[in-house]
Each structure stands twice: as structure tokens, then as C-alpha cells.
Design a protein around this nucleic acid. Structure first.
Length: 492
RNA sequence: GGUCGGUUGCCCGAGUGGUUAGGGAUCGGUCUGCAAAACCGGGGACAGCAGUUCGAAUCUGCUACCGACCUCCA
């Protein structure tokens, strides 16, 4: 049975959905004012893994991942400028052009990583009315106050009735003493009060009418609003990066409790950070490498380009609650490991069954399931698959055999866990879609086969010069030639 | 300063109180015209100190170092 680590209780808990057979999950998506970097891939892949596994288990899952396209201020002050508005000003674009541009690019990158699209991808800007209503509810319940056209959460009042800080393990006293003095906070009662609605400064481009002022919703409002709109006042899972735990998720809890009188989320899940030289990779450190840069190798820390599947594999090699330290060296190791897995999968499709199984194929399916049930332990799943790869290679080398039933089961486990759950594209699309292969492609394949047939003849005649010339020249062109017992294999 | 987490072999990274993680690299062997791939095998580890225990990398305490959050951040 699936166990997931709940940040609220700081331990693994058995997952029991609110409604039999159905799961609602909400994950904090990107703020679309720049290209997605490796750090963005982590939650996307982590919760994609969860999404896929829940579906595999038979749940009907509604997965909501938002697009933040309004409301994140650069500074916590009146003069603060919206990130998207700033980008729009700098690039002389409509804010919505910026939003659309980076949203498209985000989708493109996610597709490359084989991250499934969520069920609903709501935009903050498309839910202003709902957010205003949400703020109004908090006001009605007395947990917020209006100041100079802005609405602020009255954290002190709230903390008297609800445990503020329970998610991140803070108490109000700590926050009082530790919050820095920032400018432009005069209109707040306390520095730890946070904005629910912000009055727009005259030069602010993005603003909407509200009962309180022409302005925009506070930073944390969209998730509370859209989560409950699409998943209900209570739902199962809320995910996001650890760096969002405080203040973002803490504020979400406070908003929900203040508006609804109870919490919304049952299981809070947080993925850890990707580090680079031990430091968190992030916008604020300006040490990030975008996914596009990985894909085309265009960064001084990268020795070469890395395929999206190498990136996905690299992230899955570590458990989602551990930090992962990026380095080009680590990625190269991941690339080779992934190639090994791919190779085994390709061979698995070619294996011919025999009368009986003479190799230990073990309880692969159980191992994979146990690993996934244990808080999505993808490294353990991969370990099991690698063990299985060894067995597959042995069979492929005809040093062992496998029965028809065992082979079917083995193929099914790989399909279920490697392809469907881990979401690895193991590159058999060509083999499976022969019918859809273009004429050009099949002509090309035929030409390469022809060359290697000639080489095979040369080898039989012990004409090593011709044989090596063909192989070396093809290798130079990027082909990988492997001799087999009585033939050859090639890949590009 | 507060809260939380980490420290595993050459590198990346799992893990359980007693039994091989896995991947990469490396070394040796098998196979091969050579190569590649594959297979077999080897070496190499749990930050330090103290404690609990028959037994601890795994539990407890202390120390050192690193990091995250406390401001936007995935």
C-alpha cells in the first residue's frame, strides 16, 4: 500500500484518498517570466511520477498545476514591481505576451521530459474574480484588514485561533524576532502580515478592479483559490518545492483556514532542491542552467548536450526528498546508465522464449511496487530494473533461457514501471512504429544495412581492410556498430 | 540568531540494527581477426568522539563541517 511522506506530520503515512478511487492533487507550477531551468524539472518530474503511479494503481486523478502569471512582486514594498510586468516593460511587450511566450516554452520543455500535462492548468490571471471572493471570505471572518486599499492577513489574530507555522515548524514568536525590517510596510500592522490584495501603484501595468482598490491579488492567493475551486474545499495532495514551504504554503494553509474554517490539504509533499557545487540552483543565486541549455549543451559547465531523457533519468536516480548535486560528470554517468537500460529494453523485445526459465528473474514486479509504495523510491525501482537488465543480457547472449510466460511478464513489468510509471522513453518507437516510418527512413535504414552486409562479406573473406573501413567510417559519422555472432547491430 | 535537513567507497547515489544496493569510473578474465557491446570477477564505505546493544553506517548524545528556509525562488 502506498505510503507518502507528509510534511505536516514529518513522517510517512499510508495514503488514503478522501473519496474512494479518486485523487485530487495540486502542485505549484512555474512563474512564467523566464525559461525553465533544471530546478523546475524536479517538481515536474516528481509529481509526474506520482500522477503516473496513482493512475497505475487505478485511481482517477485530477491533477491541477497552476501557471503563475501575476502577483509575484520583486520586493515586498509598495514600489515593488510584478516580475512579469517588469519583464514586459524590459522587452516592450504586453504582459500577456510574456506569459504566453514562456508558457509555450515551458510546455515544450515538459513535453521533452515526457512530463504528462496536468488535468487542469489554471492561470492566476484567469481567476481574479474567484480570488477576490476568497479574500472577501477571509475579511468576513475577521482575519484580515483593509489598509490604504490593500488587504492584509491579520496573522496575529489568526494565530490565536489556528496554529500558524505548523507546516514549517515555526511559531509566531520566532517569526516576530526573525523577520527583517523591510521598507514600505507602514500600512501593515505587523511585518509578518502578508498581502491578500495589493493596491496597484500608478505605473503598475497589471491590475484589476476590486471592492478595495484597483490592484492585484497577493502572492499566495491563487493557490488557495484555484486549489479549492477545482479540487474542493478539502483535497488529497498538495505538492511543491521545499523552498515554498515557508512562507508560501504556510500562507496557503492560513488563507484556507481563515476563509473556510478548516484546512484543505491532507498530504503536503515537498521535493528537495537541485544543487550545483553544493548550493541550491535558483533564480536568486543566478546559478541556474536552463533545460534548453542542457538539451543543446550551450553552457560553460556542460561538457556536451544532454538529452531530455538523460535529465529525467538523472533526477529519478535520486529520491525526491534528497538534494541532487548537479555536475556534468554526474550527468555523463547518468547518460551511460540510461543507455544501458535502453539497451536491455531493446533486447528484451528481441528475446525468443524457450521451454523453461534458467535465469533468476526474481520478483521484479514486487520489488518495483514495494519501492514505489515506499514514498516513490524511484532509485530502488531503477536498481531492480538494472538487476533485471543483467538477466536480460544473459538471456540475450544465449547463456540462459526464459519461458514464454516469464518473458511476457518481464516485458509487462518493464512496460509498467520503466515506460508508464518512471516515464522513460526507452526508444522502441522505431521498432513499434515500423508502419509509420517514412519511406525516407526505411530507405536510409536499408542503405546502412546494405553497407554492413558488404562488410559482413568482407569479414567472411578476412578482408579486414574493407571491413574496418566501413565500420570506422560509419563510426565517424556517428553510428555505433556492434558485431554479433552471425551478423551485426547498429544504432545512430 | 531561530527552524529544519544533510555528511556513505574515485564520482553520483540507495538502504536495513546482524545478510551484495544500483549506476559510472577503474582493474583482471571470457568472447572477438581487431574493436564495441555483453558476461564473470576484484578492490574500495558509511564525518569524528562517546553511549545503548550480543551486535550499529543504521538508535541516543556531543563535536565538526555543509546546506535549505526565515525576502522572490521549484
Amino acid at each position: 500500500m502506498l505510503q507518502i511522506y507528509n510534511t505536516l506530520s514529518r513522517q510517512k503515512e499510508y495514503f488514503r484518498p478522501l473519496h474512494e478511487g479518486r485523487v485530487g492533487m495540486y502542485v505549484c507550477g512555474p512563474t512564467v517570466y523566464g525559461d525553465a531551468h533544471l530546478g523546475h524539472a524536479r517538481p515536474a518530474i516528481t509529481f509526474d511520477l506520482l500522477f503516473r503511479y496513482l493512475q497505475f494503481l487505478g485511481y482517477k486523478v485530477r491533477y491541477v498545476r497552476n501557471i503563475t502569471d501575476v502577483g509575484h512582486l520583486e520586493h515586498d514594498a509598495d514600489e515593488g514591481e510584478d516580475k512579469i510586468a517588469k519583464k514586459a516593460r524590459l522587452e516592450q511587450l504586453e504582459p500577456m505576451e510574456v506569459v504566453q511566450y514562456y508558457t509555450n516554452r515551458y510546455h515544450h520543455d515538459m513535453e521533452a521530459l515526457n512530463v504528462l500535462p496536468p488535468s487542469i492548468e489554471p492561470h492566476a490571471s484567469g481567476h481574479i474574480i474567484e480570488q477576490i471572493a476568497f479574500v472577501q471570505r477571509i475579511l468576513d471572518h475577521g482575519y484580515a484588514y483593509i489598509s490604504n486599499g490593500s488587504v492584509y492577513m491579520d496573522v496575529e489574530k489568526y494565530a490565536k485561533d489556528f496554529p500558524y507555522g505548523k507546516l514549517s515548524g515555526r511559531n509566531l514568536e520566532d517569526i516576530v524576532t526573525d523577520t527583517r525590517e523591510l521598507d514600505g510596510q507602514d500600512e501593515k500592522k505587523h511585518s509578518y502580515d502578508f498581502a491578500l490584495w495589493k493596491k496597484a501603484a500608478p505605473e503598475h501595468i497589471m491590475h484589476w478592479p476590486s471592492p478595495w482598490s484597483e490592484g492585484f491579488p497577493g502572492w499566495h492567493m491563487e493557490c488557495s483559490t484555484m486549489g479549492t475551486k477545482y479540487l474542493g474545499e478539502e483535497f488529497d495532495i498538495h505538492g511543491g518545492g521545499m523552498d515554498l514551504m515557508f512562507p508560501h504554503h504556510e500562507a496557503e494553509i492560513a488563507q484556507s483556514c481563515a476563509a473556510l474554517g478548516h484546512e484543505s490539504v491532507h498530504y503536503w509533499m515537498h521535493n528537495n532542491m537541485i544543487t550545483i557545487a553544493g548550493k541550491k540552483m535558483g533564480k536568486s543565486y543566478n546559478n541556474f542552467i536552463t533545460l534548453q541549455q542542457f538539451f543543446n549543451g550551450d553552457h560553460h559547465l556542460l561538457t556536451k548536450p544532454f538529452s531530455p531523457m538523460t535529465i529525467r533519468f538523472f533526477i529519478l536516480m535520486a529520491h525526491y526528498r534528497s538534494t541532487v548535486d548537479f555536475s556534468s560528470e554526474a550527468l555523463e554517468a547518468a547518460e551511460k546508465g540510461f543507455a544501458r537500460l535502453q539497451e536491455a529494453y531493446t533486447r528484451l523485445q528481441k528475446i525468443q522464449p524457450a521451454d523453461k526459465t534458467t535465469v533468476e528473474i526474481g520478483d521484479l514486479r514486487n520489488k518495483c511496487q514495494d519501492a514505489m509504495d515506499d514514498d516513490l523510491n524511484s532509485p530502488m525501482v531503477l536498481q531492480a530494473l538494472f538487476d533485471s537488465a543483467r538477466a536480460i543480457n544473459t538471456i540475450y547472449d544465449q547463456k540462459a533461457s526464459i519461458s514464454s510466460e516469464d518473458l511476457d511478464e518481464l516485458r509487462k513489468v518493464w512496460k509498467d514501471y520503466a515506460i508508464d510509471i518512471l516515464g522513460l522513453r526507452l526508444g522502441d518507437e522505431m521498432a513499434n512504429d515500423k508502419s509509420q516510418m517514412s519511406n525516407k527512413m526505411s530507405a536510409f535504414n536499408g542503405a546502412v544495412d546494405l553497407l554492413l552486409d558488404i562488410r559482413l562479406d568482407a569479414k567472411r573473406n578476412k578482408d579486414w581492410a574493407t571491413s574496418d573501413k566501413i565500420r570506422n567510417n560509419l563510426t565517424e559519422l556517428g553510428f555505433q556498430i556492434k558485431d554479433t555472432k552471425d551478423g551485426y547491430e547498429w544504432t545512430l
